[in-house]
Amino acid sequence: MPSETPQAEVGPTGCPHRSGPHSAKGSLEKGSPEDKEAKEPLWIRPDAPSRCTWQLGRPASESPHHHTAPAKSPKILPDILKKIGDTPMVRINKIGKKFGLKCELLAKCEFFNAGGSVKDRISLRMIEDAERDGTLKPGDTIIEPTSGNTGIGLALAAAVRGYRCIIVMPEKMSSEKVDVLRALGAEIVRTPTNARFDSPESHVGVAWRLKNEIPNSHILDQYRNASNPLAHYDTTADEILQQCDGKLDMLVASVGTGGTITGIARKLKEKCPGCRIIGVDPEGSILAEPEELNQTEQTTYEVEGIGYDFIPTVLDRTVVDKWFKSNDEEAFTFARMLIAQEGLLCGGSAGSTVAVAVKAAQELQEGQRCVVILPDSVRNYMTKFLSDRWMLQKGFLKEEDLTEKKPWWWHLRVQELGLSAPLTVLPTITCGHTIEILREKGFDQAPVVDEAGVILGMVTLGNMLSSLLAGKVQPSDQVGKVIYKQFKQIRLTDTLGRLSHILEMDHFALVV
């Protein structure tokens, strides 16, 4: 994948999101292997301009796509893939009243899908469409860049269908997702969380590099694949309309690839034109409109599966009536509230959605109805927002919020430890010299600072030695090549209790 991002070429006709291997024109390309080798690009942008032909009021008969309808489940399912879809609609009884809503608040519980998330729908649909058009064949390999849930859905379907599955996901995604993927037989590649989507090191860039190296491999490409919004247009939206008897006044959905909100909203605009569509985008993402909503100094966020630093091709923002931004604290607070007060075992993005819903639905009156999409299960986040310690460490809970008995030293300040200034190293000294210094002084790690004293990161003896043994660096290389740029900081005025929580999850903390 090139470091400079080429513009994806656009073909003359058809839909841009065809499933299957992508040609340089962004659509299915038939021909000899030699032709494909000559024409197939190194990668295709996940934010390529959409060429979708959908228009409100256009006859369904003019759609270029294969459409399906929700099917009634048999008493005995032939395999677990038949437990994807037909998820329950559940009334939220307490939270709406707590925040003064007059309307009825309903939750579409997508964590009841077989793999635990709304992404099971698009995973199965992308595979079925690729099999139907002859792209996927027995023994082929599926590769997908994902925040985890699409990966789980694909790995689940691949396990049943017999495909090899490789999932490329950023490091910030939970260990629970990784464990589930491994249990399903998927191979996992992790990428830096802070890598831009168009960087060769991003999950998108690495996935395309693997595709170019592995024979008979395919990126189904949830960011561009029409099967993504079509899955929701054909099934999720129809289920909502049936469950609500066609009567709903507002739908609120958090947005990642945009397939969920695009597919549902398009069908609702056709069948229930008075329904307002509300999009939820986390602070630090750029999906919301108008652009002024996205202006923030924050560039990272903890909530998973929603928000991006690019506009995915499948996201149709014209069908969203209003956007709201959400933050991590309210997302996790509301997710825990949904679990504790409503018994809905949902993930953090569901918290984002409901946090926005109780604001947006203030305009609705008694007798009206708001539906929220709860995308995934708490299963993926047992060591994250479900953990009091994690919430404390991230600053989303305060010590006084917890009532468990603490040891005698818990409320003492870090400054009472009488710490001395640490050994520091410059980023320009060599790895070999740094190892000598650390061994001589008896230290395992040291902060790396520039000549102005600005902290650049941390270097550890173990990481340097393993990097040297693996051949990633040489003793003569500058130590700046092996620094940890993500590390926890703590102030002298913070409590030892807070430091204790940090050290339970990290090997060190830097006192500043």
Results as ranks from 00 to 15, higher is better:
residue 276 R to L: 15
residue 133 D to I: 03
residue 34 E to R: 02
residue 5 T to C: 08
residue 166 I to Q: 04
residue 102 K to A: 15
residue 164 R to C: 11
residue 159 A to D: 04
residue 226 A to K: 10
residue 6 P to Q: 09
residue 89 M to E: 03
residue 105 L to K: 02
residue 262 T to K: 05
residue 149 N to F: 00
residue 133 D to K: 10
residue 104 E to D: 14
residue 82 K to I: 10
residue 121 R to C: 00
residue 46 P to M: 01
residue 97 K to I: 15
residue 164 R to P: 07
residue 167 I to A: 09
residue 246 G to S: 08
residue 64 P to Y: 03
residue 74 P to T: 14
residue 30 K to W: 06
residue 210 L to V: 05
residue 34 E to V: 11
residue 173 M to I: 10
residue 145 P to L: 01
residue 58 R to M: 09
residue 88 P to R: 05
residue 250 M to V: 03
residue 230 L to F: 15
residue 248 L to S: 02
residue 272 C to G: 08
residue 10 V to E: 08
residue 244 C to D: 00
residue 236 T to R: 02
residue 267 K to M: 12
residue 60 A to L: 11
residue 252 V to R: 07
residue 79 D to K: 04
residue 34 E to Y: 13
residue 219 I to Q: 01
residue 169 M to G: 04
residue 255 V to I: 06
residue 270 E to P: 04
residue 156 L to F: 02
residue 162 G to I: 05
residue 9 E to V: 12
residue 54 W to V: 06
residue 155 A to P: 04
residue 215 P to L: 04
residue 89 M to P: 00
residue 4 E to N: 12
residue 3 S to R: 14
residue 29 E to M: 09
residue 16 P to L: 13
residue 30 K to Y: 10
residue 121 R to P: 02
residue 24 A to P: 13
residue 215 P to W: 06
residue 9 E to R: 09
residue 156 L to I: 07
residue 21 P to Y: 02
residue 117 S to V: 04
residue 36 K to P: 10
residue 166 I to K: 07
residue 34 E to Q: 12
residue 43 W to C: 15
residue 107 A to H: 05
residue 244 C to A: 02
residue 242 Q to W: 05
residue 162 G to A: 04
residue 272 C to S: 14
residue 213 E to G: 15
residue 140 D to G: 08
residue 24 A to F: 13
residue 156 L to M: 07
residue 5 T to N: 12
residue 58 R to E: 12
residue 182 R to E: 07
residue 104 E to V: 11
residue 30 K to P: 09
residue 29 E to G: 13
residue 246 G to P: 07
residue 9 E to W: 04
residue 84 I to D: 08
residue 21 P to L: 12
residue 122 I to V: 04
residue 123 S to G: 05
residue 98 K to W: 11
residue 235 T to Q: 11
residue 32 S to V: 09
residue 99 F to L: 06
residue 19 S to C: 04
residue 160 V to I: 12
residue 71 A to P: 13
residue 154 L to I: 05
residue 177 K to H: 01
residue 63 S to C: 14
residue 231 A to Q: 07
residue 263 G to Y: 00
residue 204 V to D: 07
residue 147 S to R: 01
residue 47 D to E: 11
residue 59 P to W: 07
residue 29 E to P: 13
residue 232 H to Y: 07
residue 26 G to A: 02
residue 97 K to F: 15
residue 169 M to Q: 04
residue 171 E to P: 07
residue 265 A to D: 01
residue 269 K to Y: 03
residue 233 Y to A: 00
residue 182 R to L: 10
residue 50 S to W: 06
residue 98 K to Q: 13
residue 274 G to S: 06
residue 82 K to R: 11
residue 122 I to D: 00
residue 62 E to D: 15
residue 48 A to N: 10
residue 199 S to P: 02
residue 229 P to I: 05
residue 4 E to C: 15
residue 224 R to S: 02
residue 139 G to K: 02
residue 158 A to I: 03
residue 242 Q to F: 08
residue 220 L to M: 06
residue 131 E to I: 03
residue 81 L to M: 10
residue 87 T to D: 05
residue 134 G to S: 07
residue 7 Q to L: 09
residue 38 A to F: 11
residue 271 K to G: 04
residue 170 P to N: 01
residue 5 T to E: 09
residue 271 K to I: 12
residue 131 E to H: 03
residue 160 V to Q: 13
residue 86 D to F: 10
residue 81 L to Q: 07
residue 7 Q to V: 14
residue 69 A to N: 10
residue 241 L to K: 05
residue 34 E to N: 02
residue 144 E to C: 06
residue 8 A to Y: 14
residue 15 C to P: 09
residue 208 W to F: 07
residue 118 V to W: 05
residue 76 I to Q: 03
residue 230 L to M: 15
residue 55 Q to W: 10
residue 39 K to Q: 12
residue 191 T to W: 00
residue 98 K to V: 12
residue 235 T to A: 09
residue 57 G to C: 11
residue 68 T to L: 09
residue 94 K to V: 03
residue 17 H to E: 10
residue 46 P to D: 00
residue 48 A to E: 02
residue 169 M to E: 02
residue 255 V to F: 02
residue 54 W to I: 06
residue 109 C to R: 06
residue 50 S to T: 08
residue 156 L to W: 00
residue 130 A to M: 00
residue 49 P to R: 09
residue 249 D to C: 01
residue 200 P to Y: 14
residue 128 E to T: 09
